[in-house]
């Protein structure tokens, strides 16, 4: 009897193979008590599986979301999430017009600023005079100009050699007085024979002085 009840339960769970199922159904038909039990269990399962269930309360999701804690997220993750997640912006016509106006004004301002910077640069150049420095040194391999206008940097201003052995360079300078020296072959410091004046350099030598005037 216990074995039959176990088979009955397995039949209800769909765990019997085809031949076992057939045998069990025949046994049920042949035994009124087993048939009553089978019907009773089948009705019980039907009541469970077809029961009407209560609905989840209204605003369930809203209440859960309200109670959800805010987890700590690294700032860079939040920023990435904001930047790469699609967003929908709702704007009225007045706001759109204002934003467009702000964008156009910003562009005009930046362009004007750029123009002003260029003009300032040009004006800066306009306040300078091109001053020529020359040195006759046909035997030199290189001649450089070092002075107050280039912070005495030896390799900053190189002179160019002509066929006659004269070295020359033009330097834009504002009006003023400048001390300088020629540097021949990277090691020999020579004063300019054509300088406007000379000034003691404090190291036992003399710097050349050029005076530049505005025209």
């Amino acid at each position: 009897m216990y074995k039959e009840r176990e088979l009955l339960q397995r039949l209800l769970d769909g765990e019997l193979d085809e031949s076992e199922r057939e045998q069990m159904l025949k046994a049920i038909e042949a035994n009124p008590f087993l048939k009553r039990d089978y019907k009773g269990f089948a009705e019980t399962i039907q009541a469970l599986e077809e029961a009407k269930h209560p609905l989840a309360p209204p605003y369930f999701t809203a209440e859960v979301m309200r109670k959800l804690p805010v987890l700590a997220v690294p700032f860079w993750k939040k920023a990435a999430l904001f930047l790469f997640r699609p967003h929908i912006f709702r704007l009225n016509i007045a706001t759109i017009a204002f934003l467009l106006l702000a964008a156009v004004s910003g562009a005009v301002f930046l362009m004007g600023r750029g123009t002003m910077q260029t003009a300032a640069l040009e004006q800066g150049k306009a306040n300078t005079v091109m001053v020529t420095f020359r040195l006759q040194a046909p035997g030199a391999q290189s001649v450089a100009l070092a002075g107050e206008f280039n912070k005495w940097m030896v390799n900053e201003t190189q002179l160019s050699r002509s066929k006659s052995g004269e070295w020359q360079v033009e330097v834009p300078l504002r009006a003023g007085t400048y001390a300088y020296m020629f540097v021949v072959d990277g090691r020999t410091w020579l004063p300019d024979p054509d300088a406007d004046a000379y000034r003691d350099d404090g190291f036992g030598s003399r710097n050349s002085v050029r005076r530049v005037y505005h025209l």
């Binding site: 609905l55 989840a56 979301m65 999430l81």
Partner: peptide
Amino acid sequence: KGDREIYSLLVDKYQQMIYV
């Protein structure tokens, strides 16, 4: 990844199942 609000989709989907 930090998208707290998207969890509401799972709550919507499974609330009836869990409540029953």
